[in-house]
Simulated scan of single mutants.
Amino acid sequence: MTFADVVVAGLHLLFAAVWAGSVVFMTVAVLPAARDGVLDSEPLARLTTQFKRIARAGAIVTLLTGGHQAATGYMETLFSSTRGHLVLGMVVLWLALAALSEIGAARLTDGTDQQKVRTPAADARPFFLAASVVAVALFVDAGALAAPW
């Protein structure tokens, strides 16, 4: 493994962890507080803006670094091996996480633009719950991929 491969793998894991962590944080900390009326629309809007930045950066960096890793290690066996299937599963989960993150954040933004908090948090909750499940599934997939076969 070259130094560049190590850097790419490190960036991939770092951005994936921060993105997944921010999804789970929004789900278990921010949304319940918003649904209970503890947060006003301005703090929720700021948290949502930061979340969107993290999610978009995570999506872009993991796409690029994951593409590099797949191209240098799995392309010839992508459709014919267990490890290749794990990589394909990761791509599907990545797409789901990106979509769910964007939809959930959009639901929050739509409400905070109208100075609302409780309803947007309730509307966004199913998307963030699903995104949290997908984020965990991504790490399980990554663990299986990292395991010696």
Score class of each variant (00 low, 15 high):
Met1Ala: 12
Asp5Cys: 07
Val6Glu: 14
Val7Gln: 07
Val7Thr: 09
Ala9Ser: 10
Leu11Trp: 11
His12Ala: 00
His12Gln: 11
Leu13Asp: 09
Leu13Thr: 10
Leu13Phe: 11
Leu14Asp: 07
Leu14Arg: 02
Ala16Ser: 12
Ala16Gly: 08
Ala16Trp: 01
Ala17Ser: 11
Ala17Phe: 06
Val18Ser: 07
Ala20Val: 04
Gly21Val: 06
Ser22Arg: 10
Val23Pro: 00
Val23Ile: 14
Val23Met: 04
Val23Thr: 04
Val23Cys: 04
Met26Arg: 05
Met26Glu: 04
Met26Pro: 01
Val28Gln: 12
Val30Gly: 01
Val30Arg: 01
Ala33Asp: 06
Ala34His: 00
Asp36Pro: 06
Gly37Thr: 03
Leu39Tyr: 03
Leu39Met: 09
Asp40Pro: 07
Asp40Glu: 15
Ser41Met: 11
Ser41Asn: 09
Glu42Thr: 10
Pro43His: 05
Leu44Thr: 01
Leu44Val: 05
Leu44Gly: 01
Ala45Lys: 13
Ala45Phe: 11
Leu47Glu: 05
Leu47Lys: 10
Leu47Phe: 13
Leu47Trp: 02
Thr48His: 03
Thr49Asp: 11
Gln50Cys: 07
Phe51Val: 02
Phe51Lys: 00
Arg53Gln: 13
Arg53Tyr: 15
Ile54Met: 06
Ile54Trp: 03
Ile54Lys: 05
Arg56Glu: 13
Ala57Leu: 15
Ala57Asn: 15
Gly58Tyr: 00
Gly58Glu: 00
Ile60Lys: 03
Ile60Gly: 04
Val61Tyr: 02
Leu64Asp: 08
Thr65Tyr: 01
Gly67Phe: 07
His68Gln: 09
Gln69Pro: 07
Gln69Arg: 13
Gln69Tyr: 07
Ala70Cys: 08
Ala70Asp: 06
Gly73Asp: 06
Tyr74Asp: 03
Met75Pro: 07
Met75His: 14
Met75Thr: 14
Met75Cys: 12
Ser80Phe: 12
Ser80Glu: 12
Ser80Val: 13
Ser80Pro: 02
Ser81Arg: 10
Thr82Asp: 14
Gly84Ala: 15
Leu86Thr: 06
Val87Pro: 00
Leu88Met: 13
Leu88Lys: 04
Met90Gly: 13
Leu93Arg: 02
Trp94Asp: 00
Trp94Met: 03
Leu95Glu: 06
Glu102Ile: 15
Ile103Gln: 07
Ile103Cys: 08
Gly104Glu: 01
Ala105Pro: 01
Arg107Glu: 13
Thr109Met: 06
Asp110Trp: 03
Gly111Lys: 00
Gly111Pro: 03
Thr112Ala: 09
Gln114Leu: 15
Gln114Ile: 13
Gln115Phe: 10
Arg118His: 09
Thr119Cys: 05
Thr119Ile: 13
Ala122Gly: 12
Ala122Tyr: 08
Ala122Lys: 13
Asp123Glu: 15
Asp123Gln: 15
Asp123Thr: 14
Ala124Val: 05
Arg125Cys: 11
Pro126Leu: 04
Ala130Trp: 03
Val134Ile: 10
Val134Pro: 00
Ala135Tyr: 04
Ala135Glu: 01
Ala135Gln: 02
Ala137Val: 08
Leu138His: 06
Leu138Gly: 02
Leu138Asn: 09
Val140Asn: 08
Val140Gln: 10
Val140Trp: 11
Ala142Ile: 12
Ala142Ser: 11
Pro148Gly: 12
Pro148Cys: 11
Trp149Asn: 08
Trp149Leu: 10
